[in-house]
Amino acid sequence: MEKLFLRGSESLALGAIDASLKFYAGYPITPQNDIPEFLSKELPKVGGKFVQAESEVAKINMLLGASACGIRVMTSSSSPGISLMQEGISYLAGSELPAVIVNVMRWGPGLGGIGASQGDYHQATKGGGHGDYFVPVFAPYSAQEMYDLIIKAFDVADEYRTPAMILVDVMISLMKEKVLRRYDKGIKVKEKKWAFGSKKEGDQKIIKSLYLKGNDLERHNWKLYEKYQKMCQKEVLYEAYLCDDAEIILIGFGMIARIGKSAVDLARERGIKAGLFRPISLIPFPERELENLSTKCENFLVVEMNTGQMVHDIKRVVGKDHNIGFYGKPSSYAPNPEELYLKIKEYLEK
C-alpha cells in the first residue's frame, strides 16, 4: 500500500481513479479547480475520458449520458456550480443513474466568496433539485477520508443507482496530509446489466424519468423512497469521540469537526468532560446514534461554518427537552481550537 503526501483534492481525485472512474466532465470554478486539473492529466492515462464542458448544466448531463452506458462517472464543482447542476441531479435521481458529484463549498448566496464554507448543507441534504428524492451525502474531514469516501460514494451510487455527493470545504481540499492509497491496484466494478452496452442485447432498454401512465409515477417514487430507507439502515457513517462520559457534546461535520476535536482535547486538559459527535454521512443522517447519545448527555453544542443549518436536524432528532446551543462562523476563516474551547466553556457556564 502506497503512503503518499497529498492535498485533499488530489487524494479525492486519486481515490476516484482507483475506484475506476472512467468519465469526468468539468467546468472551471474556484475553489475546486485542482480536481479537474489533476484528472485532465491523470484520467486519460487509465483509459478514462475527460471533457471540459461549456457549462455546469451541460456537464451534469454529459454524466447522465455516460452513466447510462454503465461506466463510473463524476464531476466536481463549487457552490454556484452545484446550484446550476441541480436540474441534472434531479434527472439522475429520477432516471436511477449512478454518478458522484463533489461540492467543494464556497460562500453564497450569489457569488458570495471563495473562502471555506459549509453554507450548502441544506441544499445538499434537503434535495436541491425538484422532486421527491434523496441524494446520499458524505462529508470527509481529512485527506485520507477524501480518498476513502469518494470510493464509498461510488459504491453507494452503484449499489442504489443514485447520484451521490461529497460535501467538503476548501480547507480540507487544500490541506496536505499523509494518505494511504488502499486500492493502488484499482477496484473492480460489477457489470451493470441495466446499462447500455456496446450494442442492443435482447429487449430494448429505455432509461428515463418520465412516467405518465397510470400509477407508474407513484410506484417509481415509492421505489426511490425504499432505496433511501435501505440506505438509512445500511449506509450511516459517523464518529463519536470521547462521548461516553461527556457532559457536553460538540457536533459538527467536516473541517470544523476536526478543529472541534482539538477543542475537546483542550477542554479535557482543562477539566471539562467534552466529546465530539461527527456525522460523516449527512444523508443518511446518523439519527439513531444521536438519539442514543441524547439519553446520556444533556448538553449539545452544534458548530458550523454557516448561520445554522445542520442544527435544525439536531434539534429535530434530539428533541426540545435538551439544551442545544449553536455557534456559527459564516466567514472565510474557520475558528481555531481555542475559540471553540471558549464557546464550550461559555455554553456550560450559561
Binding site: K22, F23, A25, K49, V51, A53, V57, A58, K59, N61, M62, L63, L64, G65, A66, S67, A68, C69, G70, I71, V73, G88, F196, G197, S198
Partner: peptide
Amino acid sequence: RGLAVATGVKRAR
C-alpha cells in the same frame, strides 16, 4: 440537454 447527454453517451460508447 440532448446534445450534452449524447456527448456523454458517445464518449462512453
